[in-house]
Structure formats: C-alpha cells, structure tokens
C-alpha cells in the first residue's frame, strides 16, 4: 500500500487506524494495469527476435516497464505483442488466442508485416494484409523489424493510453488505434534519453502537483 499512497496521493488516503480511503478507482486500476502488462509469448517470424527475445534480455530489459512476465498461456496474459507475419493458416489460431485472453486486453502490432502485410503484400497467396483484419489493434509500431527502443516507445504509448483513456464506467470501449512511429529527425539516442528521463520521472512524484491535479472541483467540498 505504501507505493500506491506515495504514487497516487489524493486517490488513496490513509485514515487513522491503518485503513485506507479509496476515492478514485480509475486512477488506481489504470495505474496497476499500465504497470503490469503481461505479454503473451506470440512470435511468428523475425520480429519476435527483436520484440520478445532482445527486449526481454538484460541489455534492453523490458522489466523496467513491468512488462517482462511473458506468459505462454493467453488466459494469464493481457498484452498481445504481434511479432511477425500472419498467414492465412495462422489467422484463426490468432483470433482464438485473442478471444481467450481476459479483458482488458491490449494489442501492439510490431513490424511491417503485422501492420500491412509488408514485403508480402503483392503476389502473396497466404499473407494476411495487416493483423487488424483479424483482431483490433491498439498501437502500431512500424519498422522491419523495429528496434527494441521502438517497441518501448510503443509500450510507453500504450501505458499512457491506459492511464489516461480507460475508465471502469465504460468497460470495453475501444479507443482509436495510434501509430507509435518515430518522428523524423529523432534518433535512438533521443529515445534512450527520453526513456531514462521517464524512468526517473516515474520514480519521483511531485506530491504537490499530484494533489493539485487530483483535487475535487471547487464548490463541492463543503469543508473549505
């Protein structure tokens, strides 16, 4: 509880006697969901080497973002990282895996093949042209294959979407998918710097700013 009360002051208040008072469920649930995305081990071709193997390893270390617990069972996963070409014969299995995942479930499509069919879009008898023909996709990460940093960019985009956009009042409402492409002129060093900055920011909470943000609208609080 210490982490929650430190990180989300205003949403969870300590009251005397050791209990807590929960004021905003959305904040806490979204915070928990965004920081414990468990990906499903799903790699169908070369992107899987970058997306799951390289990023899961100690050099890039997906564990920093709470997304390292790759699950071999869709029942225990809530993030589907599509890494690789989807062919016609794989498509029904992919749909089954997606439907077996528990709500809320998120999908990141990485690489040219899962976004559009990539190099196999023309004259191919079997490549599905984009995974979004089969399942809804939340974040697209372009590249062939994308660098691990680009997947992190997509992962952070998804976390931001979860933290800002989700509410338990309207469960199952899908947002518009976003493309998490690197803007022009941005280098890998910039991304790495941004990641470092974000990690520091995540660990340091400006309590006063957070309290201001979470304050009840004026006039509703009779006490002040």
């Amino acid at each position: 509880m210490g982490i929650v009360t430190d990180k989300l002051p205003g949403a969870l208040e300590k009251v005397p006697g050791g209990n807590v008072l929960v004021t905003r469920f959305d904040e806490i649930i979204n915070w928990a969901r965004a920081n414990s995305l468990w990906p499903l081990t799903f790699g169908t071709s070369c992107c899987a080497i970058e997306m799951l193997m390289a990023t899961g390893g100690p050099r890039h270390d997906m564990a920093r973002f709470g997304a390292e617990v790759a699950r071999p069972s869709p029942r225990q996963a809530d993030l589907l990282i599509l890494a690789g070409t989807i062919v016609k014969r794989m498509a029904p299995r992919l749909r089954t895996l997606y439907e077996q995942m528990a709500e809320p479930r998120y999908v990141i499509a990485t690489g040219a093949c899962t976004i559009s069919g990539g190099p196999f879009i023309y004259h191919s008898y079997t490549t599905v042209r984009g995974a979004d023909e089969i399942i809804p996709v939340d974040v697209y990460v372009p590249g062939c294959p994308p660098r691990p940093e680009q997947l992190f960019h997509g992962l952070l985009t998804l976390q931001k979407m979860i933290k800002e956009g989700e509410t338990i009042r309207e469960p199952g409402v899908r947002r518009k998918p976003v493309i998490s492409a690197l803007p022009e002129g941005v280098t890998m060093e910039d991304i790495q710097g941004e990641m470092k900055e974000l990690l520091v920011k995540e660990n340091v909470v400006d309590v006063h700013q957070a309290v201001d943000k979470l304050k009840w609208p004026s006039g509703t609080n009779d006490g002040s």
Binding site: K88, I121, Y122, H123, Y125, T126
Partner: peptide, 14 residues
C-alpha cells in the same frame, strides 16, 4: 501456389 502461373482471388497485383 508456387507455380508461376498460379492465380487466385486473394492475390494482389502490384
């Protein structure tokens, strides 16, 4: 499908 003259409805031409 790997015959050079294979065609079906799914395939796209450039």
């Amino acid at each position: 499908p790997l015959r050079k003259d294979y065609q079906d409805d799914f395939m796209l031409d450039r």
